[in-house]
């Protein structure tokens, strides 16, 4: 990858941890969505998921370039150095799992970017641009949640299972991140309200399980990841590591 010069958004004193948290969320989810290429249920969805992945990759590139060399950061860091939440690294599962992950994450990212865009911090410029893109990701996830939840008994059952399964990864989204000037408690209540509204209209119950677990203490923002992440990273990084400097 070679990145355009983004000097317009490169303000002084970018908090590295916060930049990596935002960048890694976008990068890792982008890679997961890209895994649907060639196997999405319908062609339109293949294209939609690839487009969402591309938006996220663009955001990741800008954010990584704020704090270092994007290729080195993406391809040469070890698992423990990634700061993404565990939600985005979860495997795609069936289409319902991917949509549930999209609903949870895009709702969070949309609320977060809207807040960052309204401030004058180092991420305001990117957030002001990305919030408009993420609005479409959220819209896409919402419509699929409605369609699957309020669809056939089979689709309802699968969507319900997916929402339950990923619920335990949603608490982590609202852990304060150093350098992100955002009221995480307010963000969390706005998120809960928004997600509960969509689930309600989709005839789905708001999951009742815990939103974090003792086993995940520390979690992704501190570099602790779930087992599938290592395998994903191996695939994502292997070409660059095997053929340093390769290009086409």
């Amino acid at each position: 990858m070679s990145t355009p010069d983004t000097s317009g958004s490169a303000t002084a004193a970018v908090p590295v941890g916060a930049a990596l948290a935002l960048a890694d969320d976008a990068l890792v989810l982008s890679h997961r969505l890209g895994e649907w290429a060639g196997s999405a249920p319908v062609l339109e969805e293949e294209v939609a998921l690839a487009n969402i992945a591309l938006d996220l990759l663009g955001q990741a590139r800008v954010l990584l370039s704020l704090v270092g060399d994007e290729d080195e950061l993406a391809y040469l860091r070890e698992e423990r150095s990634f700061r993404n939440v565990q939600l985005v690294e979860q495997p795609n599962g069936d289409f319902a799992h991917t949509i549930a992950r999209q609903l949870y994450f895009s709702t969070y990212q949309h609320l977060l970017y809207a807040r960052l865009a309204s401030g004058d911090g180092p991420f305001a410029g990117l957030a002001a641009k990305a919030v408009k893109e993420v609005a479409y990701h959220r819209d896409h996830a919402e419509h699929w949640t409605l369609r699957l939840g309020d669809g056939t008994p089979e689709s309802h059952e699968r969507m319900s299972r997916a929402c339950e399964a990923l619920w335990r990864y949603t608490g982590e989204l609202f852990q304060p991140v150093e350098g992100l000037d955002v009221d995480h408690a307010a963000l969390e209540s706005a998120w809960l309200e928004s997600v509960a509204d969509v689930l309600g209209r989709a005839t789905l119950a708001v999951p009742s399980g815990p939103r974090t677990g003792a086993w995940s203490a520390g979690a992704g923002r501190q570099g602790l990841h779930t087992e599938p992440f290592g395998r994903m990273l191996a695939e994502m990084q292997h070409l660059h590591r095997s053929h340093p400097g390769a290009s086409w």
Partner: peptide, 11 residues
Amino acid sequence: SVVTVLTPAWS
């Protein structure tokens, strides 16, 4: 030289 800027965001 072509420089890319993000702000103000394109609409």
